[in-house]
Amino acid sequence: MKYENPEVDGGAEEETGQETAKSVSAIERVRRLEKIARDPEVYQGMTAFLRTAVNVGITGADFGSGVGDVFSWGADAAKGVGRKLNISLLDTTPDVSLLAAVITEPAEVFTGGLASTHAFESMLQARADWPRMKVAYEKLKAIWHGRDKVVHTPEVAAALQTFAK
């Protein structure tokens, strides 16, 4: 009599290659979450997403004069310091040059501080980050649904060759 473990055996799913929620065991779910956490493309996309959220917040705050401008200037100052000291965490727009970031600041003077000058560099950064977020989302979906089979590295190929018949 063949033993069947409903949590492990694919059953009908083996025939179609599809999986259902029931056929994914708890261990498999943990494994996939770990893989998502370790994936560099997902990490890059998540960083891009957080960066976009921070920039949207700064842009929104910058619409107000006075305190709002502190956020925008603070972001530009942190960008400069971060680039000088090579601390990437301080730069919320790494794909935008420092010149592009500060060149819009004089508009604050002409608009009484109401212009959201951070919007310009935020948009440039978001344009650079959008492809990263898309790739990360697709990768995350592929890993979660078990469609992320990797191409073998030379190391793995050599290891497989060791046991080739």
Partner: peptide, 20 residues
């Protein structure tokens, strides 16, 4: 590659094991 090293490599390749 020794068999032991090869197995260590393959253990980190299969998709049914958690990190632990």
């Amino acid at each position: 590659m020794t068999e032991r090293a090869a197995v260590a490599t393959l253990l980190h390749t299969v998709d049914f094991l958690t990190l632990k």
